[in-house]
Amino acid sequence: MGENIIRIRNVKKIYQMGSESIPAVNGISLNIRQGEVCCLFGKSGSGKSTLLNLVAGLEKPTEGQIIFHKKHIERMNEDQLADFRQKYVGFVFQSYNLLPTLTALENVTLPLIFKSVPVKERNERAMEMLKAVGLEERATHKPQEMSGGQQQRVSIARAFVNRPPVVFADEPTGNLDTRTTYEMMDLITGLAKQNNQTLVIVTHDLELSEYADRIVMLQDGRIEKIEDRRKGKEETETAAREKGTAGKAEGEDGHD
């Protein structure tokens, strides 16, 4: 796995509700590595979405540092944040967040439009992306003419079209049925792995963590546990193999 692309240093986010201070994120330090699929897992109110918003520069931390490559996200002004999002970040949301008046293709080209990519090139790239998510037939359809799964595919195409180093997904399958959920996760992790892009997924669904290289479990604004599935997977796989052979041997032994 690559070097650390995002370094989170003792980050706190405290909301003031009248006289009461509610710490949504309460001192989290975490490194996210280039090319990994990192899952922020926790129950509702655990601070996982807030953490994602902080890392994506949508909110400012009350305390702490968030460093993307060598840039301090928490110190950026609105202009710099906009530039940062345009160049380095893609988003997938639970509620798709497509522009309802634009067609699927136009929705996918939008990030390229803001980046002033010439018409021909951006249409080609957007079409390519739509093909990758299996929606080239639906290019001219508007969001309301598509199913939830299809809309989420468009939104995934939009997040990846600009080939950002990091893609953030906030409960990307929250509105989808189980079968579509797996399709979507296969698609999104597949795309990320293809180009060695980092994927940060926020979810409360433990099944999705199947797809993650690492699972960061959050509770009450703190990290409860980090599970390195990659290492773990390798370990369990080796263990299983060993166990399997051992068991077999045992079994053989037993039978014999």
Binding site: L58, L110, F114
Partner: peptide, 13 residues
């Protein structure tokens, strides 16, 4: 909402 989406997916101020 539309403005928010545009901002998130890369529109500058």
């Amino acid at each position: 909402r539309e403005i928010g989406i545009m901002k998130v997916i890369g529109a500058s101020l």
